[in-house]
Computed example of a mutant assay.
Amino acid sequence: MTLEILTPERKLYSNEVYGVQLPGVNGLFEILDRHAAMVSALKPGRLKVLKDRSNTQHEFFTIQGGFVEVLNNKVTVLVEGASAI
């Protein structure tokens, strides 16, 4: 699936990934390949990018609050601010 992390200033990340873990307002949740369409609010916290199925390669970002949209195997994370850890 395709993951994009967008801030008001720029596109911070865009790549094909296996999944992503996100800090939802009601707790941590994970989106994997071929997830159903959804929209969810995000709270400030740590976002984990799962680059492969074995979960041996990953990247982390610190995000401010925002939203995530999943549609047609594309995950778009819209946040007020973010930085790579």
Rank of each mutant, 00 (worst) to 15 (best):
E4W: 07
I5F: 11
I5E: 09
L6V: 15
T7W: 08
T7H: 06
P8N: 05
P8A: 09
E9R: 13
K11S: 14
Y13Q: 04
S14T: 13
S14G: 14
S14Y: 11
S14H: 14
N15P: 00
V17G: 15
V17A: 09
Y18S: 10
G19E: 12
G19W: 05
V20C: 04
V25H: 10
N26S: 15
N26R: 13
N26D: 09
F29A: 03
I31H: 04
I31T: 04
L32T: 02
L32P: 03
D33R: 00
D33P: 00
D33H: 01
H35R: 02
A36L: 11
A37P: 10
A37V: 10
V39I: 12
S40H: 11
A41N: 13
K43V: 03
P44C: 03
G45I: 03
G45V: 03
G45A: 05
R46L: 15
K48T: 15
K48Y: 08
V49R: 01
K51Y: 04
K51M: 05
S54W: 05
N55C: 14
N55Y: 06
Q57N: 12
Q57W: 03
H58S: 15
E59Q: 11
F60P: 00
F60L: 12
F61L: 02
G65W: 00
F67L: 09
F67M: 12
V68T: 01
L71R: 07
N72E: 14
N73M: 05
V75N: 03
V75T: 09
V75E: 07
T76K: 06
T76M: 12
V77P: 00
V79T: 03
V79W: 01
E80K: 05
G81Y: 11
G81A: 15
A82I: 04
A82M: 02
I85M: 15
